[in-house]
Design a protein around this nucleic acid. Structure first.
Lengths: 214, 214
DNA sequence: TAATAATTATGAGTGTACTCATTTATGAAA
DNA sequence: TTTCATAAATGAGTACACTCATAATTATTA
């Protein structure tokens, strides 16, 4: 029989504790550096130094430098989904409003990190990128796309047979990428140009969806 | 003694001749290798070897490996523009048809090179990429966007004040990226899914444009 | 506790894109 | 031609992301 531990919480062994701590240190160090110097100019050596570990250790936790960035976007997507879910007022709001808040929340989250987002995010979405089209990244995209799907069905339950039904979320994904590109290059006060484009195009897109086809 | 100077035409000195020849050798070697092994797996050393020059010489002709790819996309864009311009039937065709042929021509050109396009093209368009947002690449995008602008004005001369007028070409650029992404991942027979999406979305977009606003 | 197994940390090593001081080729002037 | 300036070619060198054999640490078994 095993030396079982105290009754209470599932006690984490030294190993698991340490692993978690180091993982966090890496992410924290990387984010700080990405923000300071941008993605490309941040070396994995610097990340390791800042996290007080050996260079190789970074790669015991993340397969590539991009993966560290991907972790950040997981936080971003999960955060945005949670915000939309928890917003009571939104529950019965029109679809375009839900989608607006979803993207707005994402952009707010990304705002302090614009410098490396252009580099890392778009890069992570390259079709051939190990990150963009396999493993974690696919899971992340699916989580996002499924959520959008839910929002659509929740608001337009009768349209599910429309011509757009099966690829509306995919289109939304591409649309989001477009918005992101636009946002990154938007120099207007408070990114108002992006918000305006967002507002109008969402209203329009939803109208389209309601018609059920082109 | 070096006899000779057959000077009879816009004589290009040995230097200029050689420069042109080597540039072509590099491009030819690179394209062949990109096609064989993909963009990432092609080393600049291999390109140099195939072009029968020293490794460093590659960088006397192109600043980066991506730049070699960019050269390819210049050919692609110029080719597509020329095809649309030369097509007499199109001259009085509806806008959506012109745009359809434009993109279709581009995709046809890219078809044999899909393997490296995902890697190189999207990469080249990253907002932070030296390639994507400066120098040659900007010039290339401008050439494309201006052409689209022309096509729009040629077909819808009265809409130029519409809300879409100033950013329609930018939207089209983003739209093209989206289509490209879709196309790269489209496994249907003859990419028919992409063509169908293209057809419907273009008709719709042009309808939108005609209304002049959202 | 001691011995053994499993996991993790380490940093020198590898292959790559790109740089740069040096050498070589070309063209013009004398 | 000879001399010299300028352009171009060269390949060893650099910095980087990532690998891997080995050492150190933690867990398990006796």
């Amino acid at each position: 029989m095993k030396a079982s531990k105290r009754s209470s919480a599932p006690v984490k062994g030294r190993r698991a504790q340490n692993r978690e701590a180091i993982r966090k240190r890496i992410v924290k160090a990387a984010l700080a550096l990405f923000q300071e110097k941008g993605f490309d100019s941040t070396t994995t050596k610097a990340i390791a130094r800042r996290a007080r570990i050996a260079e190789g250790t970074v790669f015991n936790y993340f397969e590539t430098k991009e993966d560290i960035a991907l972790h950040f976007f997981e936080l971003e997507v999960d955060h945005a989904i949670a915000v939309v879910r928890k917003n009571a007022r939104l529950r019965h709001a029109p679809l375009e409003e839900k989608l607006f808040v979803l993207i707005e929340t994402q952009l707010d989250f990304l705002k302090p990190h614009q410098r490396f987002i252009g580099a890392a995010f778009i890069q992570a979405l390259r079709p051939t990128s190990k990150l963009g089209f396999s493993g974690q990244a696919i899971a992340l995209r699916n989580r996002y796309v499924s959520f959008v799907q839910e929002l659509i069905e929740e608001s337009l339950p009768r349209q599910t047979s429309g011509i757009f039904a099966w690829f509306a979320p995919l289109v939304f994904w591409i649309y989001y990428l477009g918005i992101l590109l636009y946002w990154l290059n938007d120099d207007s006060e408070g990114k108002q140009n992006t918000l305006a484009l967002l507002d109008r195009s969402l209203k329009f897109g939803v109208m389209l969806l309601k018609k059920g086809e082109i």
